[in-house]
Write a protein that binds this DNA or RNA. Sequence first.
DNA 1: CTGTTAGCGCTTTCAG
DNA 2: CTGAAAGCGCTAACAG
Lengths: 328, 328
Amino acid sequence: MQKHPGIKDIARIAGVSIATVSRVLNGNSYVSPELSERVLKAAGKLGYQPNRIARGLRKGKTNTIGFLIPDIENPFFSAIVKGAENFLRKYGYTILLCSSAGKAEREDELLNVLYSHKVDGLMTVPLESQNPYLERIEKLSVPVVVIDDIINQKNISSVASDNYSGMKKLMQYLLDTNHRSFAFLSGDPHTYSGKERLQAFRDVMVQEKEKVEYEILLGTYTFSSGIEMLRKLRKIPDAIVCGNDMIAFGVLTELQKLHYKIPNDVSVTGFDDVLFSKMTNPPLTTVRQDYYMMGRVAAQLLIEDLNYKKRNSILLKTELVIRGSSRG
Amino acid sequence: MQKHPGIKDIARIAGVSIATVSRVLNGNSYVSPELSERVLKAAGKLGYQPNRIARGLRKGKTNTIGFLIPDIENPFFSAIVKGAENFLRKYGYTILLCSSAGKAEREDELLNVLYSHKVDGLMTVPLESQNPYLERIEKLSVPVVVIDDIINQKNISSVASDNYSGMKKLMQYLLDTNHRSFAFLSGDPHTYSGKERLQAFRDVMVQEKEKVEYEILLGTYTFSSGIEMLRKLRKIPDAIVCGNDMIAFGVLTELQKLHYKIPNDVSVTGFDDVLFSKMTNPPLTTVRQDYYMMGRVAAQLLIEDLNYKKRNSILLKTELVIRGSSRG
DNA sequence: CTGTTAGCGCTTTCAG
DNA sequence: CTGAAAGCGCTAACAG
């Protein structure tokens, strides 16, 4: 018997029926102590591990959750996955992971793959806000939670950081510390976070329009885009407000190459507070969002949907982190 | 009929038997064009997606690969996962991901979970070199490839970077540029990479013992460990050779706080070449290892094992990357 | 070429 | 409390 042991083998050794074995192993129905013990002993001896595929087929529940993200290598997304995984494992779920590599058509394809694997639920960080593939998800009739985007359809749960108020907090701090001219180097404005951060900046500028001046540049959430946008700036303002930390790193590097003193000549700020933000020289003033928590909350929402059919949308608080890259 | 359509539904609509439907959908047996078309049309209309759980049970093959790593949030590991995933998907595999969170007992537990899900193969980055749980993997009789560690048992494939010769290359460069006193700030010496890098450093020191002096400190692969080890240094040498880039970042930060000029007063080197190594000030001289490629090669090895039962162990080349943190 | 049928390993009625 | 038997959705003999 070199094949992996099954419930049948246990039954034979313990001298009981397979039904009894199943009952003992699942512990949801009463079985006499004697039989119970015999079964457990046999299972232990064989090193039995249940076949979740067979169980999944029978029960219509696989204990797997599909995870669809743009890029697993990006620490933001992987932190989300980590947060979610730690939570989901407590409930016996394992993650089926797919990354769309930034391609929209992949999202669709992978959605089918995941569905095909009969995942019990789905978690996704969409490539773009209001992604049309979300409509398809609905039809799949599998519980979903969308991450880093807020969905208004009430049959889908979602979770995101409060990018808008985070950026407002940051701007308020800069205004309070007598910054009056600004440049906003935006990340991709098609994303939810890009939209919200940009909008917050604009709203503050409009509100304070008598005392401030500013310019806005659009780019992507990358180091090199930060460098490019900096070069296009018409003038170096009091503060350069970057769409995220990566952009800020590019800006920092380029400014130093041009012999600007930070923060004496110009303040630079980021958004996200990634691991390296505290290691730059000077360390970066930024807005922290907790990606790990985002994954955790997302998992929690999914569990609630799975167990009680409750849906919800949650906005996570952000925190202003003041470091040396801004004069205060 | 709100339930998800199955092969039966297609058969009914197309007016054929379920066997015919299966044959058409799998395309491995000849079916007359007429029936074929009717089946395809029905499948399309229903938006049929095969139930991989049922198929898996029947065929004894799930098209899933289990992935077990210490920490998904760590960019090294997630790059490996990404490389592997991109390759595996071409072959129709999806990844079941688990991270052990650095705990050895979790590795064992998760191994069972993965096994229970009847994965067709397993990829793992072990917490420690020569981890005992590798023995257990053998018994599972499922193809395995171990990553970032070289396994000598020939029934298991493995892949790692050539840490030893990478470190030697780096040391040779430092010697060639007239560095004569060294400090080696090691990462965890229980890991395969830690061992190899340390050994290479030692071997070079012994070989050049007449002209050099050095000290060795043991720590972990972290920013804060880098700072700590630097503080314990008895003297600042010509070159501080760090076990990886993270340690080097800590060292860089702390040295600058102490007003050392880099590389004029002291050279600092890393290992890995993470994304941020080119963004530090000065940018870091380091040894690049290609994690993405490591994942890809690992996937390739797994596919070979799966298809032809061929096993292999591969050592990946590393590349010396000279930047501003070392005087040359 | 096509249909009928027997399971894959497990859970869950349904009888006893 | 326990066993026999049905069946989850699909594939693969086996007949025709």
